[in-house]
Structures are given as C-alpha cells and as structure tokens.
Simulated assay, not measured.
Amino acid sequence: MSESSAAPAGAAPASAPELSAEDAKLVTLARGARARVGAIEGAAVRDQDGRTYAAASVSLPSLTITALQLAVASAAAAGATRLEAAAVVTEASTLDGAGHAAVRDISADAPIHVAAPDGTILGTVQE
C-alpha cells in the first residue's frame, strides 16, 4: 500500500475477527509473498472455486501495482468470476483504495482481512 493512496470511506478495518482456516491460509500466503521478495506488502485472494492467488507489491519505473491489485488481476486472468475472501499483509493500518476497488470490481461482499507483517489481524473490511 502506498502512503499516497487514500482508503475509501469505510475501508478502515473493523475489529479483528476470528479467521476461518481458509482465511488464515490467505494471510499465510500473503506473508510469504511479501517476505519472498522483501516487498512493502503481500496479498492473497481465494476465488469461487477455492483457488488461491498470492502476490507482492511491484514498483518499477513503468509500473506500480499494489499486492492486492496484482492478486485480483491474477485471479481474473485465470477466469475467476467471484472472490470469496482476500487478505493483505502490510505495515499500514488501513486498506489502500486501489486494492479495495480491485476486490470490489469482482466481489461486492468478499471480506478483506488486513494483517500486520507478523500475521496479526488488524481488522476486516466488509464493504
């Protein structure tokens, strides 16, 4: 998440919920994607068929994309038509607007879990 991206209204995570095993797996995948390349953030999504897609943020001279945008793009490119859930691991305390919008492009109601780098759940965005 870049600091310049504003979180949309209501995108501050609600209190930390108890995660299902499947959603906890998304946090683990997001942490791994982030750590593998030393990225600012990592993200993972699960589609309607239970397939998961993990990604790290990318910052190149000609391309900047958040981890959540890239995870959603990977799912869409693989034919996903709906997301069941998403997770972002970041040092920020809010969800970035671009990642939030990418998830909502495919799923209006998928929970987006926001976690700290150590995996602690900071909260969940439901809107």
Rank of each mutant, 00 (worst) to 15 (best):
A21N: 07
E22Q: 14
E22V: 12
D23L: 10
L29F: 07
L29K: 03
G32N: 09
I40N: 14
E41G: 05
E41C: 02
G42W: 02
G42V: 06
V45E: 10
V45L: 10
D47Q: 11
D47W: 07
Q48D: 13
D49I: 00
R51C: 00
Y53L: 10
A54K: 06
A54V: 04
A56G: 05
S57P: 04
P61D: 10
L63I: 11
L63R: 14
L63W: 12
I65L: 12
A71G: 11
V72H: 09
V72D: 09
A75S: 13
A75I: 11
A76M: 12
A80P: 08
T81Y: 04
R82Q: 14
A85T: 07
A85W: 04
A87K: 00
V89E: 03
V89Q: 01
V89Y: 06
E91W: 12
T94Q: 13
D96P: 04
D96F: 00
A98C: 10
G99D: 02
A102D: 03
D105T: 14
D105W: 08
A108L: 13
P111F: 00
P111S: 08
P111D: 10
I112C: 03
A115K: 00
A116R: 09
A116M: 06
P117N: 03
P117E: 03
D118Y: 08
D118V: 08
T120C: 10
T120S: 14
T120V: 12
